[in-house]
Design a binder for these strands. Structure first.
Lengths: 351, 351
DNA sequence: TTGTAGGCGTTATCAT
DNA sequence: ATGATAACGCCTACAA
């Protein structure tokens, strides 16, 4: 029993439950009980408990969650995977996740994949090795097959945001319907040449919005014209560039549907710089209804998507899954509503 | 030795190194060696190694980082604390942190404090219990005394972003100088009544920008007028509201300095709605140079702050600290440069 | 009410 | 080159 002091030599060791026990003159079991959350209802003498608490505080003791997790087979950590936290869509989602996760006592490991399958897979492996209790895949994984078996083997619950083939609970936005609705708004105003500024093909969300655009065109008897769709990254610069190209073509569009608000703001800037009046000469729509959408001039007509609620809902789904409240079988996707917000950037086409 | 199958009863156990060892017909030590990163240089027969690798893969084995961390006294996890990831300043910072952290093999736990001391302290405790190797406090803690001793006791390295009294490496922006520079720009243009749309008092960053404003006023022989400063949250709505109040006062300002770009965009909108021309009648400046700053019209004159670099620099600081490459004593703060970006939202005051 | 001890899954040390 | 085994820090039957 003399080997206990083995490691005391180098840098001072971190204080462990045994140190508290020794200092308090009790056993480690007693310390554990005194510190345990429900120690009130436990068999422990109040004075003992008090004494242990004080000793623990005096020593600056912090329980080691690793040891606890190793024993209990649960870490109270969830992994959250997003394509890119810099994309203004995600901070709100992540914030929603964190709010409900932390309220439920979970910590959150954040991972950015940049939509690269390699990064995604590497992160998922890492998360399994971390023995996170659950993983929230919030986009960027639509085209990457995910090995659910490995999660099942390690009892890791999975929830995804967005449409995906993986068999697990999900929260989705009906981006097809939303894309159709905003396009239909322009068509309803009388526009017949409606352009689309689309995003990268790698994003399922953006593909769906694109598909909605085509659907609405069809439903309104409008032809799909390849020349009227431009692509780019999801930022202002791309919107600016593509809008500039659109306006200089023969027979330019009178309406421009955009796949997110940043691109829309870029488009607005391009139109402004060319002296084209919005909405009188050209109408523009955004997508997402980010905070500045109602502060640019003209105010942006766009579609509101409940980003924060996407996060909270997904986290709630995951947490009830962790509590075993969700069916093993894939439950129906939770589809959150979107809404076309009509502001000032659209009008009937010029006569 | 028959008690090995104890837990096999309930849900199937996760596969451990012992399962791999048994399946491969070797000892756990051999498996560990085969899987260890530098096993190439290790004493292990290539065929054995190969065999173990295959068995491991076949079983879907993933090493348990908890156990490893418990033993090695390091988790390869860092904690990142921000006031609010929804604030557009932080996603880029966090992205920078994650990029260098993940490249160095670290995972990241993200915490939002909303600048509430209670939340901050609770998170810091949690992080210590998680035994993260280091903590990056990226703002929101300026007025909360931080107990560095507890970090020291648990060998947790700390790096902060922003000015703070805590004794540890830090990366800072000279917000005072930046605030002075942008204000001086207006003063240099001939403005004599320069208003400030300030942020919450709880933010050190915002206080510093405010102080810079006062400094520039003084240096230019301009009086500080309490009536010319309005406060609000750091969003468009606040900028809109305060700008509206400013324009309706007697003897309104000819220049408006704003403490972040979102507020500036709000101010621009308010001015637009009142038919006040920017920059001809009133000049407006922003702060941060977020992506849309050059896409609103008029383009926003603002000060660029290297958000992404703030993140990478802080993470690099923390990681070299973890590697023991940084002095124990507080090193000099790393101050990153800011730059006034002159665009179209400022002009000399009307005659 | 309190103490003893086994084991969670690793890695590292010491044998062999 | 490989194997047995002792920690890492904690919780929880079980014993006292």
């Amino acid at each position: 029993m003399a080997e206990r002091s083995r490691r005391r030599q180098g840098g001072r060791r971190t204080v462990s439950i045994r140190d508290v026990a020794e200092a308090a003159g009790v056993s480690v079991a007693t310390v554990s009980r005194a510190l345990s959350a429900d120690s009130a209802s436990f068999h422990i003498r109040p004075e003992t408990r008090q004494h242990v608490l004080e000793t623990s505080a005096a020593l600056g003791y912090r329980p080691n969650d690793l040891a606890r997790a190793l024993l209990q087979q649960r870490t109270s950590v969830i992994g959250v995977v997003v394509p890119d936290i810099s994309n203004p869509f995600y901070p709100d989602v992540v914030r929603g996740i964190e709010d409900v996760a932390s309220a439920a006592g979970y910590r959150m490991i954040l991972c950015n994949t940049d939509r690269e399958p390699d990064r995604l897979n590497k992160y998922l492996e890492t998360l399994v090795s971390s023995r996170v209790d659950g993983v929230l895949i919030a986009g960027g994984a639509a085209d990457t097959p995910i090995d659910v078996d490995i999660f099942a083997r390690y009892h890791t619950k999975v929830v995804v945001v967005g449409r995906h083939d993986v068999e697990c609970p999900s929260v989705q936005l009906d981006n097809v319907a939303a894309g159709a609705a905003i396009t239909a708004h322009l068509a309803g105003l009388g526009h017949r040449r409606i352009a689309l500024i689309a995003g990268p093909e790698g994003s399922r969300t953006m593909r769906d919005r694109f598909e909605g655009y085509r659907t609405a065109l069809r439903e309104h008897g409008l032809p799909f014209d390849e020349a009227l769709v431009g692509r780019g990254e999801l930022d202002e610069a791309a919107g600016y560039r593509v809008a500039g190209e659109l306006t200089t073509m023969d027979n330019p569009p009178t309406g421009i549907v955009t796949v997110n608000d940043r691109m829309a703001v870029g488009a607005l800037a391009a139109l402004h710089d060319q002296g084209i009046a919005v909405p009188h000469q050209v109408s523009v729509t955004g997508f997402d209804d980010v905070s500045f959408a109602s502060y640019v001039r003209p105010k942006l007509t766009t579609v509101a998507v409940p980003t924060y609620r996407v996060g909270t809902t997904a986290a709630e789904l995951l947490i009830s899954s962790l509590r075993g409240e969700v069916e093993r079988t894939t439950s129906e996707p939770v589809v959150l509503p979107t809404e076309v917000i009509i502001r000032d950037s659209c009008a009937p086409p010029p006569a």
